[in-house]
Write a protein that binds this DNA or RNA. Structure first.
Length: 113
DNA sequence: ACGCTGACTATTA
DNA sequence: CTAATAGCCAGCG
């Protein structure tokens, strides 16, 4: 095994978990970070999402919101409304840039995975 | 090499 | 109740 082409960086783990989010569900940055053992590095999760849509396959970053259920990263999708439209298309109600019944739609990677 | 910024979260006032 | 601050760690100038 001359070439160790396994990118097990923190970012890669974030992308994997984010891809496991079921359709119609949402999760938080801290939940993913905590699942990876870095609950204090919630910022890194969000930073990882900065290039998530550039990856292959792309990561459903629109299903990842902050602890309040607010679409904090909607402005990074190119168009601010893109994230909300995607969420509503999956059956998630969004109001005032926040996910309604966020607690009910919340998907815990540590519990479900 | 150093410092600033940032898609967060929890705590304190 | 809301607002501000600190802690966090990696990328970029």
């Amino acid at each position: 095994m001359p070439s160790g082409k396994k990118e097990d960086s923190f970012f890669e783990q974030v992308y994997e978990v984010a891809r496991q989010i079921p359709r119609g569900r949402v999760t938080s940055y801290g939940a993913i970070a905590a699942c990876l053992g870095a609950k204090s590095s919630s910022r890194m999760v969000g930073w990882a999402m900065n290039g998530a849509h550039l990856l292959k396959p792309k990561v459903p970053a629109h299903r990842v919101v902050n602890r309040n259920g607010m679409l904090s990263g909607k402005m990074h999708f190119g168009e601010p409304d893109r994230m909300q439209q995607l969420l509503e298309k999956e059956g998630i109600a969004v109001k005032d840039d926040k996910v309604t019944d966020f607690k009910t739609l919340f998907w815990d990677p540590s519990a479900e995975l």
